[in-house]
Nucleic acid binder design. Structure first.
Lengths: 364, 364
DNA sequence: TGGTTGTGTGTAAACGTTTCCAGTATGGTT
DNA sequence: AACCATACTGGAAACGTTTACACACAACCA
């Protein structure tokens, strides 16, 4: 029953050596029927359970996968985590989870802790793959690792994600098709999320192709009052805006609420599109038009990749995967109201402004 | 740089023994300025990092807290996890997370794994504290542990939660105040969640006090079609129902969507109240009337309790805490439409029926 | 009979730490 | 000069495992 029963205690009780106990319990070597019986009985009576610390120290493997994500507050990460957990579990692996809060310094700390705990592999999402010290460290180690959500890092890092740029490009097409030519991209953490930047780039690309003015970039935070203020400022300055593209679903929902607070109706006055495809987006009214990404599947595949690497040679084959996504139509996106024929005139550009309205900025 | 640098390597490079290296790096004993300097230099040059496996094996403590929750899909658990993480982190502890999927057998497995990994303490939510084998095991061990979400287990288990019954009682009062006398309690996993049952009990208590008919119990699953079907059946059988009380916010949102699909408007045709207070409930329209529980704070306090127990004597002082909650009004709850004066006549009871409509059932 | 094969077992080394203990200087007293 | 603290250091044991190795014993074959 007690957890401090060791293999030694079992050996004493079974009247044999600890080597025999180990061999029997692990089926890792020859043993007579007699000792098998005695050992198993003794282990059962004492409620013996292996101390994985000793085991891992000896075997140099912990059967633990370290995970670093920005937060659990965004369900899309929670999904991925569940995917990792499920897959790991199936193969007898554990998961050691850390949240880095979109902070590169915290990412490094988390990695350091994980390494100290001797995890066998690491699955992570970083703020900016291009400048990530964490990623550089990882590359220098001979430890399988894999990025999730980060994609197209173009640096040979193993990754499982979706093509954010392509997905956002499609959103752009859809918006144009619906008659939205003056679109604003709303982002939290633009500087600490390469996904945000890729999505903005994809949108810009589609809009440019359609000959529309370059989408404005509105950088906000989640605080409801601030968001409302920012949106109010936006509508005052860019009244011809007919659609918002939010960098993720949570933000999209917050925007819809903010617009509502300003007396605007979605989608009648303004359309909103999100990104991620969290399940809640489908519960609300209006339902959220968004890009659905396979969060859980990402976790699953990343975990599977790590486990394969561990069970075979020991090094991940860098077999990056771009998973497919779909655009999910929703009530938050409607064709532009036909009453006002505006939208084609190009806008005066401002390089900076209060209210976080930032123009033409591509990266931090 | 490499993670397989050991204290031995540092010792060689610094020209001293491993004992000295350990003393210097841990500041755990006397050391000369000269060796301090050499050791620190050597450790830095080699990129040495302690192997926590060796350390833990020796020190008999892992500075790791095991956590078992039902799922991450419900944001309320994600919140708690973040709270645990943050607090643990502040004190240099790690978190080992497992999801048990509302399955008592899985709960046991998870605990077993955690024990194997020699966690220093366990924070968990179980399906049913009264019958939980996991909890029984835990009690027999001398390992600090603490329940979260489970509350009023009445068995002396340390717990940090909210009084579900009292909270649901308040919901009942609010419903009555708003003129809702025919209420249905909608639950997922009624049999695998003591919280659900406590909330139902609280509602029943309040309704009985007000002289209202006993609330019906509608047990459903999350699948949209099934939920819609169940709701349709409910409305057909109990047309006088004016309000739904869902066992948690996610389910409440799903119900609102289901009702919408059936052509009903919330709150005009029927009111809906949730439980948990997830932040999304405040973003949607209508906003969700609900009980707000301090998920993150629960995690924080549970973690703090465990760490205190570990840093002091070693056994949790069983200092259970019932945290406070608040009722948050929301657009999903409105006074009963005055047009139809129904609602007072008592209903014919059925003991069972298709469509999962179950009457007067108090526990599994 | 002597050798080979095989099966079953125990001893002991290793994994990376911490820490007790005994030792060696050094310095300051008597 | 002998003594004793004091400050530092290294050897070695311990934590709980796995596993290489050596040994003992039986059975089999020539």
């Amino acid at each position: 029953m007690n957890s401090k029963v060791t293999i030694k205690d079992v050996a004493v009780r079974a009247g044999c050596s600890i080597a025999t106990v180990s061999r029997v319990l692990n089926k890792s070597g020859p043993s007579s029927a007699a000792s098998r019986e005695k050992v198993i009985a003794a282990a059962g009576e004492l409620g013996f359970q292996f101390n994985e610390l000793g085991r891992s120290l000896q075997s140099q493997r912990t059967r633990t996968i370290g995970v670093i994500v920005p937060t659990l507050a965004n369900p899309v990460f929670a999904d991925a985590i569940e995917g990792i957990q499920a897959t790991a579990d199936d193969s007898g692996y554990q998961m050691l989870l850390n949240c880095a809060n979109y902070d590169p310094a915290r990412e490094e700390e988390c990695l350091s802790t994980l390494l100290g705990k001797q995890v066998d592999a690491v699955i992570l999402t970083v703020s900016d793959p291009a400048t990530s010290q964490t990623l550089a460290t990882l590359r220098g180690l001979e430890l399988p690792y894999c990025l999730i959500f980060n994609q197209n890092t173009g640096d040979g890092h193993p990754e499982v994600g979706v093509d954010n740029t392509a997905a956002a490009d499609i959103v752009g097409d859809v918006l144009v098709t619906h008659g939205h030519h003056n679109v604003v991209f709303v982002a939290v953490r633009f500087s600490t999320s390469d996904r945000s930047r890729q999505r903005y780039a994809g949108l810009c690309q589609a809009m440019a192709r359609a000959g529309c003015p370059e989408p404005q970039l509105l950088e906000v935070d989640y605080e409801p009052e601030n968001l409302e203020l920012a949106l109010a400022g936006l509508l005052a300055r860019e009244p011809q805006t007919t659609a918002l593209f939010a960098s993720n679903d949570m933000l999209a929902l917050a925007c819809i609420r903010g617009l509502r607070a300003l007396g605007k109706t979605v989608p009648d006055d303004i359309s909103v599109v999100g990104f991620d495809g969290i399940s809640i987006g489908d519960l609300v009214d209006p339902s959220l038009a968004t890009i659905v990404t396979p969060g859980r599947e990402m976790g699953r595949q990343a975990a599977a990749m790590m486990i394969t690497a561990l069970e075979t040679n020991g090094r991940a084959p860098g077999n990056s995967r771009a998973l497919s996504f779909t655009f999910r139509p929703g009530g938050s996106l409607a064709p532009r109201a036909t009453g006002t024929p505006a939208g084609e005139r190009s806008l005066p550009r401002r390089s900076t402004s209060p209210l976080h309205l930032i123009t033409n900025r591509r990266s931090e």
